[in-house]
Design a protein around this nucleic acid. Structure first.
Lengths: 122, 122
DNA sequence: CTCTTGCTTCGATTTCTGTCGAGATAGACC
DNA sequence: GGTCTATCTCGACAGAAATCGAAGCAAGAG
């Protein structure tokens, strides 16, 4: 995924003072890259999964902690986790019988950097 | 739209210290509400539209300023603007022949509030 | 080795989304 | 009034995404 290879950090203004969104128009590739993250978060189930993982004790949760929360089948939860994983928002690791997921704070921070000053600077 | 009626401001921790996403799991309605915003931003064209409007001189742009940038027809641009409008991210106002759009900074700030401390607190 | 459990992948179905062309509406100008 | 321009709405279609059941794979228990 290109957002894991540093493209987002090249957005204008991330290292400067103001929101890249407000300073100058996003280029098409930047927008494609960013929209992948937003799209991954644009589903209520995935947003809750992300929040469940992030707020879970130790900062990680196994799928068994997650799937009971929803009225959805295992494959569906697995699908949503895969979308989050492929967007780079979470990472999974097998440990014995269970697979544990944890959030990737840097990616969330990149998103926040794009967004934060936009509201504050007005 | 419920995110315009203040629901987002009731998220746990927005007025406190830490990211609501990380502090405790989002409830289903909160996630639905939030995901509407993320979904609206989960398209490259809409992200660029948002950025074009925000970075345009005076903080607003008419559709004629926007539609020339893309290889898309008028109806398609109009559709994307409608999605952004219904999400509460932009507002449009007719002034004479043209319709001007500007961003709604509070909504962007709410999104940022949800996101920002998640990365910073790690 | 076989059985069970946890999770994923596969294939099919249904619903949602992006895009367009055609037509409608609103305002400016003559 | 008529006409032109700017924008939106509507209806249709193709491609994408969400969901499920069935099957597969990995790891531990017996």
């Amino acid at each position: 995924m290109s957002n894991q290879t540093g493209l987002l950090t090249e957005l204008p203004g991330v290292a400067g003072c103001c929101s890249p969104l407000v300073r100058k128009p996003l280029t098409a590739p930047q927008a494609v890259d960013l929209s992948r993250l937003f799209k991954a978060m644009g589903d209520p189930v995935r947003l809750r999964l992300l929040s469940l993982i992030a707020s879970h004790e130790g900062g990680e949760a196994c799928v068994c902690d997650l799937s009971g929360v929803f009225d959805l089948t295992g494959p569906t939860i697995s699908h949503h986790l895969k979308v989050l994983r492929e967007a780079g928002l979470i990472a999974g690791e097998r440990r014995g019988t269970w697979i544990y997921y944890r959030i990737q704070p840097e990616v969330l921070a990149q998103l926040a950097a794009v967004l934060r000053p936009a509201g504050a600077s007005v």
